[in-house]
Design a protein around this nucleic acid. Structure first.
Lengths: 156, 156
DNA sequence: GCCCATTTGTTCGTATGTATA
DNA sequence: TTATACATACGAACAAATGGG
């Protein structure tokens, strides 16, 4: 109606709600307007609002409680902030590896095996994260690429 | 018949389609039956079928082409691979912590602190991956949801 | 405790637009 | 051109949960 662009109405509503959540106009923990209120505010039908909210719910941004409302669960831009935690994790792994090398043979063999398996899985996760960033059409954080953790040679 | 359980009809249809895709009854690359055929086959309305297919599409299992059909894009196992690695990583961390507790004083304190920090960051990584899946219009792999001790609480 | 308005979640039917064959 | 099929959008109805009176 108001928009004549090709993008579907329910996605436009979902995008606007994502923006309002990101800009803290709809803070985390608060309830978004009800379905009927959103329909009147955006000038669309109930079906369009339901489709938009269903998309946000599928994304995990909001969670609905029957009889109460739909509440904001997280913000879309927390992803970029949490990307730093990856860097921290890699640093922790590197530190742990250094500690392991320093301790040398004082460590039980089975524990060394556990740590090795842990390192392997972290590398796997890193690979998957790279793939996910690629699918997001978002540049991979340089800190994630610069991590040399994938190639740790412990005397084994 | 299938209404004996409280699970919604569209989720039951989605579950059955996932099973048929996983068992290669609907191979990757092939087209699933049309909306009307599925509605008649399952004895439900068009709306239910469309909701089920929309869920599969959000999970990245199928992709729809207007005028042609809905084609299988991947198997649930493939999609669940990334989530499974998370599960393994968390299991490894749990095992490592158990080993740490068993070894007792044999472990240096600084290493114990590193492992604790590592465990904290693994939880952060999990939430990070959840958000990445959200931005990919894929809500959550079911295996990731089924992770034991999956508290949706981010310390916030 | 009971009734009632509100809200979400689900389901139904139908109509229109667009793409494919 | 006609037919099929998906995507979107409209309206309507019911159940369940919540909260106020």
């Amino acid at each position: 109606m108001t928009e004549s662009i090709g993008r579907p109405a329910y996605q436009q509503v979902a995008d606007d709600l994502r923006r309002r959540i990101a800009e803290a106009e709809l803070p985390v923990g608060s309830a978004i307007p009800s379905t009927t209120k959103l329909a009147k505010a955006y000038g669309v039908s109930i079906t369009v609002v339901r489709a938009a909210v269903a998309q946000l719910r599928a994304d995990g941004l909001v969670v609905g409680q029957p009889g109460k409302g739909v509440f904001v669960r997280a913000t879309p831009n927390t992803v970029a902030e949490r990307a730093a935690s990856i860097e921290d994790l890699m640093a922790q792994v590197a530190e742990l590896r250094a500690e392991l090398r320093r301790a040398g043979s004082a460590w039980p063999d089975e524990v060394a095996a556990e740590v090795a398996a842990l390192r392997r899985d972290v590398g796997l996760i890193r690979t998957h994260l790279v793939d996910l960033y690629a699918q997001l059409d978002r540049p991979l954080p340089t800190t994630l690429l610069a991590v040399p953790g994938a190639e740790g040679r412990v005397s084994e």
